[in-house]
Amino acid sequence: MPKLMIVAAVALVDRDGRVLLSQRPEGKPLAGMWEFPGGKVEEGETPEEALVRELAEEIGIETQASCLAPVTFASEPQDEVHLLMLVFACRKWSGIPQPLENQGLRWFRPNRFHELDLVPADRPVAAQLRDLLGG
Rank of each mutant, 00 (worst) to 15 (best):
residue 2 P to I: 04
residue 3 K to F: 08
residue 5 M to R: 15
residue 5 M to E: 15
residue 7 V to R: 07
residue 8 A to G: 00
residue 10 V to C: 09
residue 11 A to C: 09
residue 11 A to T: 04
residue 14 D to N: 15
residue 15 R to S: 15
residue 15 R to H: 11
residue 20 L to N: 08
residue 21 L to V: 05
residue 22 S to N: 11
residue 23 Q to D: 03
residue 26 E to V: 02
residue 28 K to R: 15
residue 28 K to V: 14
residue 29 P to H: 14
residue 31 A to W: 04
residue 33 M to H: 14
residue 33 M to T: 09
residue 34 W to Y: 14
residue 34 W to K: 06
residue 35 E to M: 12
residue 35 E to V: 01
residue 37 P to N: 08
residue 39 G to C: 04
residue 40 K to Q: 11
residue 41 V to Q: 04
residue 43 E to G: 00
residue 44 G to C: 00
residue 46 T to G: 08
residue 48 E to V: 01
residue 48 E to A: 12
residue 50 A to V: 04
residue 52 V to N: 12
residue 53 R to H: 12
residue 55 L to R: 02
residue 57 E to W: 12
residue 58 E to A: 13
residue 58 E to D: 13
residue 59 I to R: 05
residue 60 G to H: 11
residue 60 G to Y: 11
residue 61 I to M: 06
residue 63 T to E: 02
residue 63 T to L: 11
residue 65 A to H: 12
residue 68 L to I: 08
residue 68 L to F: 06
residue 70 P to W: 11
residue 70 P to E: 04
residue 71 V to I: 03
residue 72 T to S: 14
residue 73 F to C: 02
residue 74 A to L: 00
residue 74 A to E: 10
residue 74 A to G: 07
residue 77 P to G: 10
residue 77 P to N: 11
residue 78 Q to A: 13
residue 78 Q to S: 11
residue 79 D to R: 15
residue 79 D to A: 15
residue 81 V to K: 14
residue 82 H to P: 02
residue 82 H to Y: 09
residue 82 H to E: 09
residue 83 L to Y: 12
residue 83 L to N: 13
residue 83 L to C: 08
residue 84 L to F: 14
residue 85 M to Y: 01
residue 89 A to H: 02
residue 90 C to T: 01
residue 91 R to M: 00
residue 92 K to T: 15
residue 93 W to V: 04
residue 96 I to N: 14
residue 98 Q to F: 13
residue 100 L to G: 14
residue 101 E to C: 09
residue 102 N to A: 09
residue 103 Q to G: 10
residue 103 Q to S: 15
residue 106 R to V: 05
residue 106 R to P: 03
residue 108 F to M: 06
residue 110 P to W: 01
residue 110 P to Q: 04
residue 110 P to E: 06
residue 111 N to P: 01
residue 112 R to E: 14
residue 114 H to E: 09
residue 115 E to G: 02
residue 119 V to I: 13
residue 120 P to T: 01
residue 120 P to A: 07
residue 122 D to I: 01
residue 122 D to F: 06
residue 123 R to E: 09
residue 123 R to V: 07
residue 125 V to L: 05
residue 126 A to G: 07
residue 126 A to E: 06
residue 129 L to S: 05
residue 132 L to A: 08
residue 134 G to F: 08
